[in-house]
């Protein structure tokens, strides 16, 4: 089984910051807007390098989204930065009308998604944002798994014309994808070849899926792990190719099972290749305060939870 090495824990938001810094140097049309969370979003370096292209809007996310939409008129490529909760639920109608319906080239960059935001608790831990964003016509939805992939995605979305929701997180997590790897929007990445079960994971759950695959390998179960960084447009073919081989699937995400990656995968299977599926996701609940590891454990979002789901789905084959 192909194995992956953690080159050192790093936060995905720093990958975004590094990508933005690079874009600042290479693309003069890139502008950045922030709603009083510059440090949290790792936008300080872009701000220092290009103060004329950095727009601090204060604690006013609705205004930020509208200004970003307006800046595209004149050829700018705005990247907005705030927490995932304030990037989506708080400003849904602004995104819907001024960005998505108006087809504006705005990149909504959202940190601190999911329960791994930790101690701040449920007011800040959005678990519904993927669903909210993927329902908007024309919106591309990306959830990256580590530092390197987040940096690569940040660079890639600047070249893609159209609205994008880029979701990443707060904690330091294993960094294992290639440095300066190519990021193809909408193209799933097969991490391990397997024949017994498919595990498709997104965001922080991708590393957990690899850990689960290792444990399964030791028990003689061959798991195919697929990193779905783009939830919309979904790489239907990669999912169907894998499930045609394995006959069952586990989806894993730091999000409510309602509206998330799992539901998108279930739609593909139901239409083209019905097969048993288990969901590793939060179960229609809010989060709470705690450390990221405690919360991942309590809400069933780690490699142990994936192993349990694999055991269940194998019995349903």
């Amino acid at each position: 089984m192909k194995t992956y090495t953690n080159t050192g824990n790093k936060d995905t938001r720093s990958g975004f910051g590094a990508g933005l810094t690079e874009l600042g140097k290479t693309n003069g049309n890139v502008v950045a807007l922030c709603a009083d969370l510059t440090g949290s979003l790792k936008m300080d370096e872009f701000k220092a390098n290009h103060p004329e292209r950095f727009f601090q809007v204060g604690i006013a996310e609705a205004n930020m989204i509208g200004i970003a939409a307006g800046m595209t008129i004149g050829g700018k490529i705005p990247f907005t930065g705030t927490f995932a909760n304030f990037s989506t639920g708080r400003v849904y109608d602004q995104i819907r009308q001024s960005v998505a319906y108006s087809d504006k080239n705005v990149k909504i960059c959202a940190s601190h998604a999911g329960v791994t935001l930790g101690e701040d608790g449920a007011t800040h831990q959005i678990l519904e944002d993927i669903g909210l964003m993927k329902m908007l016509p024309g919106m591309t939805v990306i959830n990256t798994c580590d530092y390197n992939q987040t940096k690569a995605a940040t660079l890639a979305i600047a070249k893609h014309h159209g609205p994008v929701y880029l979701r990443f997180g707060r904690p330091k997590v294993p960094n294992f994808t290639p440095e300066n790897g190519e990021f193809k929007i909408g193209k799933a990445v097969k991490l391990t070849e397997g024949s017994d079960v498919t595990i498709v994971a997104t965001g922080h759950l991708v590393w957990e899926a690899l850990e689960a695959a290792k444990a399964l390998h030791e028990k003689g179960i061959s798991a195919e792990v697929i990193n779905i960084h783009t939830i919309k447009p979904l790489d239907d073919q990669a999912i169907l190719d894998s499930v045609s081989k394995t006959g069952c699937i586990v989806t894993a995400e730091e999000h409510n099972y309602l509206g998330g990656l799992g539901e998108s995968v279930a739609r593909v299977l139901a239409q083209h290749h019905p097969a048993p599926q288990e969901f590793v996701a939060t179960n229609d609940t809010f989060g709470e305060s705690g450390t990221p590891a405690q919360l991942m454990e309590k809400y069933g979002l780690n490699s142990d939870a994936i192993l349990k789901a694999v055991n269940t789905v194998l019995k349903r084959k």
Binding site: M71, T72, I73, S98, S102
Partner: peptide, 25 residues
Amino acid sequence: VRIASGSLGQGMSVAIGAAEAKKLN
């Protein structure tokens, strides 16, 4: 027409963005 409007209260933010883009340009 350069932006959708109808859901109220969004146009001034958009106009500000366009004005900021003009300054940058």
